[in-house]
Write a protein that binds this DNA or RNA. Structure first.
Lengths: 159, 159
DNA sequence: CTACAATCGACAACGTGGTTGACGAAATGG
DNA sequence: CCATTTCGTCAACCACGTTGTCGATTGTAG
């Protein structure tokens, strides 16, 4: 028979390690390029805001968290100068969240850095295998590229 | 030219999605088998305690968190009945953390469930490709299978 | 037009998990 | 014998999530 199979627990560990490596490098590079203070959550949230703007409720839906949590995230993003709240002229209840130029800068840099990091992996694994890896992950871990629900998987309460 | 490359940001997302899928399924199954209340962090910590027992400081080192955080985790594990604190007869400062039978039960079930989940992936991808995936991840995300430093990557403060 | 329901955003209270700082007790070493 | 280090714990704080509530506004009957 062939070599022994890996123990099952290694898989999630490697997945997490890989994720962490990527995200940590992203944030380090982002800090170097004038965006310190940014956290993984912020990046995801900023991405989720999108170019057209959103509301807290909608953002919460996209991120898979409560509207209150989304509101707090928006607060943080606003404090960092990445988004701005504007009153919606058509609906006085709504407040539209829009990305600022600085937020956009962060976003484009993130995209570039992620591409560079991916290139780094491609150099190690080869483009073919990297694509295979991505394809395989898509098959076992499907889902919209942006319905991440990223925060909460660790601290998710049971109550 | 070949098909377009995936955008770089998809990789971390898929990695996280895969991790989440595995861990969520683990916890769901664990709950079904008489271990509700267990959280991802607990599993990692329990694993990190090891069969020989540890101290809070040592556990903190292994998990990559402060001794205080490790202490809190031990508190939680103790409340759940998974570990026990004993005074070290050789050193009155130390308190040795040891896994209880129930903790051991949780651990062996976790191992089995993780193996089953891996088998599930193997059925989808084929053993060969799954191994390739694991090999590739090992290359781009090396590190001890247990130096996870799992908690903290999301909430890691910059200050 | 008015009354009722739904929606949005915010506030409060809380839980969890991390951090630092400080401190007493015990071990270690000059 | 005293100074330093180590261990465990307490307290305060921050980040991020949750639920519950509530006022303001909008939409929808009646």
């Amino acid at each position: 028979m062939a070599s022994t199979e890996s123990p099952g627990f290694e898989l999630p560990l490697r997945l997490l390690l890989g994720f962490r490596a990527l995200v940590d490098q992203l944030n380090a590079q982002l800090a170097r390029e004038g965006h310190p203070g940014v956290r993984p959550v912020h990046g995801f949230a900023l991405q989720a805001v999108g170019p057209t703007g959103t509301t807290a409720v909608e953002l919460g839906r996209r991120l898979g968290v409560s509207k209150q949590a989304a509101g707090k995230t928006i607060d943080a993003l606003q404090r960092l100068g990445y988004v701005q709240r504007r009153d919606d002229p058509a609906d006085a209840r709504r407040k539209v969240v829009a990305i600022t130029p600085r937020g956009r800068d962060c976003l484009v840099r993130s995209a570039r850095i992620f591409d560079e990091l991916r290139r780094g992996w491609a150099e190690v694994l080869g483009e073919t295998r990297l694509r295979a890896l991505e394809d395989d992950l898509r098959r076992v871990a499907p889902g919209e590229p942006l319905g991440v629900d990223a925060p909460g998987w660790l601290g998710a309460a049971d109550g």
